[in-house]
């Protein structure tokens, strides 16, 4: 155990013993920042689907239910989540041209660029160019499927598992899955921009 770990543990113990804070309050803060917000939820879903073929099948058949299996639910922007898989010949990308609909339970709140007029206007009309500008060059023969979230259905892209990752654990795989890969503007395993 490192010196820092000992000191942190000692501090927590002393302050909780004195009733200044409670362990439960600390747990709640940590879990909020560590797990409840942001794209790590989606990354766990993707990593599970890469490792478990049965889970992948359930995820593609009923995204909402399979995502709820991992504890990620929510009526706000998550009542119905459809997962769309990338493959060698198909690439998916998600947008909301009318406002900024986004799958909050798995990706958190959207970044500013997702809500920008540039992205919303152009990704439906010229997706291949927009993706190339954003650093994702696709072969001209790869079919692009754009999902415009025009009602209450929310979309999550299941990226392809990067080659050479057979030996990685589910946790290590989840670390390769970026927010951008799950929107469909990047590949998994690429460094987050």
């Amino acid at each position: 155990m490192s010196d820092a770990a000992l000191r942190a543990e000692a501090l927590e113990a002393l302050l909780t013993e004195r009733g200044i804070v409670t362990r439960e309050a600390i747990d709640a803060v940590v879990s909020h920042y560590e797990q409840d917000v942001g794209p790590m939820n989606g990354a766990r879903v993707v990593a599970r689907a890469w490792c478990d073929a049965d889970y992948r099948a359930r995820l593609l058949a009923d995204g909402t239910a399979a995502i709820a299996e991992l504890g990620f639910t929510g009526p706000t922007e998550g009542e119905c989540i459809v997962v769309v898989p990338n493959g060698p010949r198909v690439h998916n990308v998600v947008v909301c041209t009318l406002c900024s609909c986004y799958p909050w339970p798995v990706l958190g709140l959207p970044p500013a660029w997702y809500k920008s007029p540039e992205y919303r206007a152009r990704v439906v009309r010229e997706p291949r160019d927009v993706l190339a500008e954003m650093g994702l060059e696709l072969d001209p023969n790869v079919e692009i499927r754009v999902w415009d979230s025009s009602a209450e259905v929310r979309y999550l892209v299941l990226p392809e598992r990067p080659p050479g990752t057979e030996a990685l654990s589910e946790d290590d795989l989840a670390a390769l899955v970026s927010r951008d890969a799950m929107i469909g503007v990047a590949r998994a395993g690429e460094p987050a921009s």
């Binding site: 439906v124 009309r125 010229e126 997706p127 291949r128 001209p140 023969n141 790869v142 079919e143 692009i144 499927r145 754009v146 999902w147 415009d148 979230s149 025009s150 009602a151 209450e152 259905v153």
Partner: peptide
């Protein structure tokens, strides 16, 4: 427009 692109809406 792109011959290999489609757009889906709900």
């Amino acid at each position: 427009a792109d011959a290999h692109a489609r757009v889906s809406l709900d």
